[in-house]
Design a protein around this nucleic acid. Structure first.
Lengths: 229, 229
DNA sequence: GTCTATATACCGATAGAC
DNA sequence: GTCTATCGGTATATAGAC
């Protein structure tokens, strides 16, 4: 269960314009099908879990024959891994950095906003990630032990420096990161619960704005910070 | 998938002392086996998901033949439902109430502590619940729509009253409940991630104490409250 | 009540025609 | 590259001996 392979298909975006202006790209169909499959897999895995999702159902959602799916991803575990590579890549593009010279209030607020926005834009990815962690992270263990640990340590060091400089209340930086993670992801992972409790049919953009505002409000004040203008 | 039946086996704890002082209770073996199965089911379902958990593996963990398990719970879905009835019953016993005349700081602090303690004592139950919600709550939908909605509304009303009386900062009471839920459950649901990031082999009691202290510290201050003595 | 044997169904993966 | 047919394995659930 440590087969956390990198999706290494040739995805170079080589443009090779044809005669009549229509772009010709070798592997364009392949690329498109790959994306369709990964998107379908995201929905099926998120909704039914690893075992519960079947290659058949993924194929149907992607509007491709089952064997075609197995042609692109030789087996189910590889497909699952490739999906996480996809998700983690997407996340890395979005994550903004924080630096010691930044204003703590502004940095934390923008971090919270970015995470809430992620919950809004990629709820399936968030749920998949949560399910994977809850079940013991068999596929992402390596990622947690290396990349994520380093990521947290880097951010925690910056926060600690802010504290040492007396620019915010002395709270455990690592716990603070966990608090921001959990409270923001909650809106994606527990969407159904939130909707049911609030008796809403579906989320609207303003719900996320409201959530982000509430969280920055409470967490920043909890860190002894004034809300940025 | 709406077969959310209540486990209605005769579980009356009728004591019927025998001749030599040894308690005789009809259905005692049945009760014991039921508990063993439900405990095993909790572990298997939490670790592998609904589809991933097999009756065979549950039976082995409970040290009973597979058919014996199917004798107590006629099928897999009933077993899954009975497990949640069990969990929800356990939770209802623990949940403390909050009243308008309580001190907001103390009430919220004890609520946070109780939830963290729950994450420590019943991590599997928390993970099962999370997985169920993430996957759209097919079995718990009814519970969310009725019991849980009422529970939240009752607590939110009390918090709102505190706000109206100027005893705490004006924050959205429902969002505050979500914040406390998400941040406390996180320690059970994302245990592996937390351990990996902090490079720890396993949780200790003091880790939970530390987490509870951090959360009460930040959240209470975020609500404009002083930490209770 | 307990357990063996088995019916039935479905899944992942492969072989091979086109 | 695409698709049909199918193999081997395993799951739930039941029938029936004890």
């Amino acid at each position: 269960m440590t087969d956390h392979s990198v999706a290494d298909d040739g995805l170079e975006a080589r443009d090779d314009p044809g005669a009549n202006g229509r772009k010709y790209r070798p592997g364009r169909i392949r690329e498109r099908n790959r994306e369709k499959i990964l998107l379908a897999a995201e929905e099926e895995f998120a909704l039914n879990g690893y075992k519960g999702a079947t290659i058949q159902s993924i194929a149907e959602r992607a509007e491709l024959p089952k064997s075609n799916v197995l042609y692109y991803f030789s087996n189910k575990t590889r497909m699952y891994s490739a999906m996480f590579d996809d998700i983690l890549g997407r996340w890395n593009q979005v994550f903004s950095d924080i630096r010691p010279e930044d204003d703590p209030a502004e940095a934390l607020a923008s971090f919270i906003r970015a995470k809430v926005e992620m919950s809004r834009r990629y709820p399936l990815a968030s749920r998949l990630f949560a399910t994977e962690i809850i079940q013991g992270a068999p596929f992402l263990m390596d990622h947690l032990r290396t990349n994520m640990r380093e990521w947290v340590r880097g951010r925690a060091a910056v926060i600690q420096q802010w504290i040492d400089e007396g620019r915010m209340a002395p709270v455990d930086p690592v716990q603070l990161i966990f608090l921001i993670w959990s409270s923001t992801q909650h809106y994606a992972d527990f969407q159904v619960q939130i909707l049911m409790v609030e008796n809403k049919a579906e989320y609207e953009k303003r719900d996320f704005d409201h959530a982000a505002e509430f969280l920055t409000d409470v967490i920043l004040r909890g860190c002894g910070l004034e809300k940025p203008a």
